[in-house]
């Protein structure tokens, strides 16, 4: 897989895949997509990087420690946003009832906690996918 064509094309195409992934995550409440789909697209770009350049090069760009921190942070942000609803006296994971500003429907900064939760899910899914893939192909690190 260490072909020059694969490496050059991967280098060109990865930023666009990641841009599209972030677009899908940040427009999760406006257009088809959301945290799961966008996170998987971002993870797909990183998997393409592993396939083209090898696990060692990918480990330098996204260390396993960072991936673990992002993953835990996604879950923690999700629970903390849920607990905000409890703190103000509404239900767990409440949105409008917990006083999050809904904004104008159709804008990027709208819909209260949905945007924050979608971003948290997106980063968590991306780091989970890349961690699963890295551990599954770990034996080929020497090759």
């Amino acid at each position: 897989m260490r072909n020059i064509i694969v490496r050059v094309i991967a280098r060109v195409i990865i930023p666009f895949i990641q841009l599209y992934g972030f677009y899908v995550v940040f427009h999760g409440h406006l257009s088809p997509g959301g945290g799961f789909a966008g996170g998987t697209i971002i993870a797909a770009s990183l998997i393409l990087y592993v396939l083209a350049f090898g696990l060692v090069a990918e480990e330098k760009r996204v260390p396993e420690r960072i991936a673990q921190i992002i993953e835990s942070l996604g879950a923690i942000v999700y629970v903390v946003i849920g607990l905000v609803g409890v703190l103000v006296g509404a239900q767990f994971l409440g949105n409008k009832i917990a006083g999050f500003p809904l904004g104008v429907p159709g804008r990027i900064l709208s819909s209260g906690s949905i945007l924050i939760l979608t971003i948290a899910i997106g980063f968590k899914v991306a780091s989970t996918m890349i961690t699963l893939f890295n551990h599954l192909i770990e034996d080929e690190k020497e090759g």
């Binding site: 999760g28 959301g34 409008k96 429907p105």
Partner: peptide
């Protein structure tokens, strides 16, 4: 009206 999100699927899964 309830969530402010245009994507109904997103509104269901995250609200």
């Amino acid at each position: 009206k309830d969530t402010g999100a245009l994507n109904a699927v997103s509104a269901i899964i995250t609200d």
